[in-house]
Write a protein that binds this DNA or RNA. Structure first.
Lengths: 246, 246
DNA sequence: ATAAGTCTTTGATGTAGGTCAATATGACGC
DNA sequence: GCGTCATATTGACCTACATCAAAGACTTAT
């Protein structure tokens, strides 16, 4: 058991907090975006705030998909496994992101907390009932899914056709863009995941990720002041590298 | 200009046919699935039946996404390009599939007809208006998107972590499964796309796809009676190969 | 502070699949 | 049927990245 965890139980068994949506720090950037006060109350009534510690598995691929989640704090990695243990990260989640899409009522991937996390949990059946009641909510979900699908297709292009340096550059840029859209600046980004997580996201090995980052450092394009944090010094060059324009 | 094309114009400029949804051959497996007669009429009223010839580009990545489509006949390839021409197929569409998801009002990929195709075309603005009117329709779209997202994640696992033989086996199995769900049997599948299309879908080269297929033929797992058609002789073995259980 | 464990970096070597090039096969028009 | 063109196959060779192995650098516990 990891000692760094402040919270020990799994997400579905131990809701430590049960705060209403009104206080939510991600309202307006998330599922609840642009809901009327009334609708927000309805959503609030079926949701439970949950906290999970770093390293805790939040959902397991193939388990019945009884809950959906909205991330309100921390960061999460999503992944799928092959029988022999090979792993593919399908995404990283940050506050505002949605978790829990399923097929045949089972989760399509596993999710693990990269840091201590806060989540807003919805029973699937209740959320689905609410979708029929609140068209705005359904519409919002539709838009989020459609965006995710576009990103998934970008990732296919990356995985299938980009070189190691293009992959790493694209990854850093995507994180930067995300950070910028929230904080206004995307020059310094946080890297809560390890090298091997990044490798499994980009279809590379830990070693190749590390070598590629050193390479970018040597060229002066990035610096890594502390592990877990990265600074982009030459955004233009990184952008060119990401698209193979070199 | 290709001589094999029966239809010369692009999809958005030349609706040759304008038949109502009532006659549609894919109703019940598509967007229009489970709509009431009344709702179907509304949907019908904003749709235009369109035919495009083999090789015609139906939509272009980055063009304004003015239309959405439902495939009613033929097959289509979807792809994204890098500046230097490297290509990643993001999917193949068959009757019943939906085409046209976008981000920032622009198409996220290009689409080209693999064979002469029939499509059902909806102006985006009108369809979006209709979504608000018909919750069932929105719900249906939500389910379709969510399924597509799950498939996209499977494809990430394939692209990032599978070997050539696992990729090709998985691809054939996926086509087989699709065929089976429609026709009842999945032992013989049609391959309307060329080797290089398959390669660009699997993150491989034409040559590697070809070598891998001959490999599978030599092992007796598949046969290729004519180009454009493929028979699976040992489904079990192919399934094991697809997941790396060998 | 120190020890133990984990994660990252760096180096040496191997290989799956890419690249380049030469046939072979099939589709279509005449 | 015959020539042309596009696509598929096969072979020889190469390279980007993986694998294997050995230091460093952090982290946390005592």
């Amino acid at each position: 058991m990891r000692s760094g965890s402040h919270f020990a139980q799994t997400a579905s068994s131990n809701p430590l907090v049960n705060s209403p949506c009104e206080k939510c720090n991600v309202a307006g950037m998330s599922l609840c975006h642009a809901l009327s006060c009334d609708d927000l109350k309805k959503l609030s009534s079926i949701s439970t705030a949950v906290e999970v510690g770093k390293g805790v598995t939040i959902i397991n691929e193939m388990d019945p998909a009884d809950f959906l989640f909205n991330v309100t704090g921390g960061s999460i990695k999503l992944y799928k496994l092959l029988p022999d243990g090979r792993r593919q990260m399908t995404g990283f989640l940050f506050p505002g992101d949605f978790l829990g899409i399923a097929m045949n009522d089972c989760y399509a991937y596993s999710a693990e907390a990269l840091e201590d996390c806060k989540l807003c949990r919805f029973p699937r059946a209740k959320l689905e009932a609410l979708l029929k009641e609140i068209p705005d909510l359904e519409n919002r979900l539709l838009n989020m899914l459609s965006n995710e699908l576009v990103l998934a297709q970008d990732q296919m292009l990356l995985l299938g056709r980009k070189t190691a340096i293009e992959k790493v550059s694209s990854f850093l840029l995507a994180l930067s863009k995300r950070t910028k859209s929230k904080t206004g600046t995307g020059d310094v980004i946080s890297l809560p995941m390890g090298r091997s997580d990044i490798g499994d996201y980009l279809g590379l090995t830990t070693e190749t990720v590390s070598r590629t980052l050193t390479n970018l450092k040597k060229k002066g394009i990035i610096s890594i002041p502390t592990n877990g944090q990265l600074e982009i010094n030459d955004m233009e060059e990184l952008t060119d590298l990401a698209e193979g324009m070199d």
